[in-house]
Design a protein around this nucleic acid. Structure first.
Lengths: 213, 213
DNA sequence: TCGAAATTACACTTGTGGGTTACATTCGGT
DNA sequence: ACCGAATGTAACCCACAAGTGTAATTTCGA
């Protein structure tokens, strides 16, 4: 508010602070993903960062804050992904591809994986609801694209709800099997998955010609 | 061994016992799925069954036994499913369909869902390994079918490992979204998923004719 | 160099739940 | 009526982790 020439000082401090806060979130996310939220103690997180438990409390109010922070960051990232697929002038398949690639990339990170791997029990109802809302928006976007594709005749008739569920299932499951020493690169996964998905959504060649509109 | 006419008594006893043991496992599975394994106390399970904690210990040795029992039962069921898809005389798509339908059906039950929803941390390394083995067999079977399909030319070229991962992801995710008051019937899910999967595996119509062998 | 921010050391409260056991009681088949 | 299986009551131990208070100490920007 009142700062002038020196873009350092208080800024530098709070920037540092934010960076460190993220470090706490990321360390938390990694451990939550590996061992589960409840099985991870703040001491574990502290040890991973070579700091003390007390210091963690300098950056967050509670353990729950860490989890919530992770998932909140995740949703912010996903909001960007959604934004990049909102361009009406692109063909539907391209817009779907962007959603899938973006989600696939993000879910391959510690923070992103926490969105899929950590069950929401542990959060307070309000926070759970807030996050659910964010996920639902992403879901809706994919469904809407599928519906549009069906209307345009470039996607076969199907239940968009179930197809979207299948796609998210495939994507959300990635961190459960791909967190190894040498993981499959997310680009590779995205390509294979997209081949499956886009092919799977094509109007059936056998029934080429059955259209409803 | 020494029993004759009276197929009751001891038999009836142990049969009853097994039934009740299953009741414990099922109640456990339901609660584990809902609240997580670690968040579920034996008191919770006892309350769900209207019995006391002490009685549970009459049927199982430990809490871990309950979880392991659930997943063991699950794998036994899945072994049957695999058996039903092992018939060489059937076309590959039919064999894949049987796997998917069977898995979809089973994962829609409490016991089956526990296989997908409960993380393996909580089990001892030996038991974890045993279960992992069982899951891996199912995975291999699907991969093998995909590979065979590719060889036969009825499935397009793809990475069977990643395709199988996508399929299992879609299936394993079902209990995460479909445990509601009025769930989507598993037959419906299986049909929609199979349409996606089988369509998605078809040799691409655009590139009709690119074969490698 | 000064002062505030960042970090540590450490002790302490508090609560919880799983495993276990001893003893009492009810139930069901023969 | 008897005996063992099935179940209940109740209490104990113990480890562990969230979170807090406080004082001391270090780091770092101005």
């Amino acid at each position: 508010m009142g700062n002038k020439t020196w873009t350092k000082t208080a800024d530098s401090r709070s920037a540092q602070r934010e960076i460190k806060r993220r470090a706490v979130l990321m360390a938390g996310a990694r451990l939550f993903n590996d061992q589960g939220y409840e099985q991870t103690s703040l001491e574990d997180i502290a040890a991973a960062l070579n700091i003390t438990k007390r210091t963690i409390y300098y950056y967050v109010q509670s353990k729950e804050d860490i989890l919530f922070g992770c998932q909140q960051l995740s949703l912010e990232f996903l909001a960007d992904v959604m934004e990049s697929s909102r361009d009406d002038s692109l063909p539907v398949e391209e817009r779907i591809s962007r959603l899938v690639r973006g989600y696939c990339e993000w879910v391959s990170t510690d923070l992103g994986a926490s969105l899929a791997m950590v069950r929401p029990h542990s959060l307070s109802p309000e926070r759970r609801e807030a996050l659910h809302e964010g996920k639902a928006q992403f879901d809706f976007q994919l469904r809407a694209l599928i519906e549009q594709g069906i209307r345009e005749g470039v996607i076969r008739h199907c239940d968009p709800r179930l197809v979207a569920a299948a796609v998210f299932g495939a994507l959300n499951w990635i961190p459960f099997w791909n967190r190894t020493a040498r993981p499959v690169p997310h680009e590779e996964i995205a390509e294979q998955y997209l081949a499956m998905i886009l092919n799977g959504l094509l109007p059936s060649p056998k029934l080429q010609g059955d259209r409803a509109d």
